[in-house]
């Protein structure tokens, strides 16, 4: 077992643990913190896959911005301090179905032939090439994505804004 493999297993264990924490934690804030753990672990996986830029983006946007946003949402939607049931009634069936899904996916992965898995050799992509591809070859999708982001932002503001009319209507 090489060092890289060891690091992978540790990171994978952390990611799975974080994921389980997200879906199992009884405290919503803990769940959010577990999500940060899982996202950081995924960033580690990206580094192992030689995509440092992606890891950077993951940490900045996901672990930083998105999770903080979720924490804010949790705070805004809290109903007093009443203890709440966190898990729905259909959890046993959901567990069975999810396990089945996992089994199917893993079986598929295990029984298929994948290219380049013989020696585990990967290719490191330099930042310059990535940037060039993003702004040349993928320029149009990039612009569309930024437009989507802008519209989503505007929509979010419109939806979340506390209008006086709306308050009257809801009362």
């Amino acid at each position: 077992m090489t060092v890289a493999q060891l690091i992978f297993y540790v990171i994978a264990a952390l990611a799975v643990a974080g994921g389980l924490g997200v879906v199992l934690a009884r405290n919503t804030v803990y769940a959010a913190l577990f999500l940060i753990l899982a996202l950081l672990a995924v960033a580690g996986v990206y580094i192992l896959l030689a995509s440092e830029f992606l890891a950077l983006v993951q940490v900045l946007i996901y672990a930083g911005a998105v999770t903080v946003l979720m924490l804010f949402a949790l705070m805004l939607t809290r109903v007093g301090d009443l203890p709440e049931t966190m898990t729905g009634a259909q959890w046993p069936l959901a567990a069975v179905v999810s396990s089945l899904l996992m089994g199917l996916l893993v079986t598929t992965v295990a029984t298929s032939d994948w290219p380049g898995d013989a020696d585990g050799t990967i290719t490191r992509i330099p930042f310059e090439q990535l940037g060039e591809a993003l702004f040349r070859q993928w320029a149009v999708p990039f612009e569309i994505a930024s437009l989507v982001l802008l519209i989503a932002l505007v929509g979010a503001i419109v939806l979340a804004r506390d209008e006086d009319d709306d308050v009257e209507e809801s009362e």
Partner: peptide, 20 residues
């Protein structure tokens, strides 16, 4: 919504099982 989502996932799993 969770009921609907569960039904969807069950459908996906069932289809995958059939394919297998």
């Amino acid at each position: 919504l969770p009921n609907y989502a569960l039904a969807m996932v069950i459908g996906i799993v069932a289809l995958a099982l059939v394919a297998f």
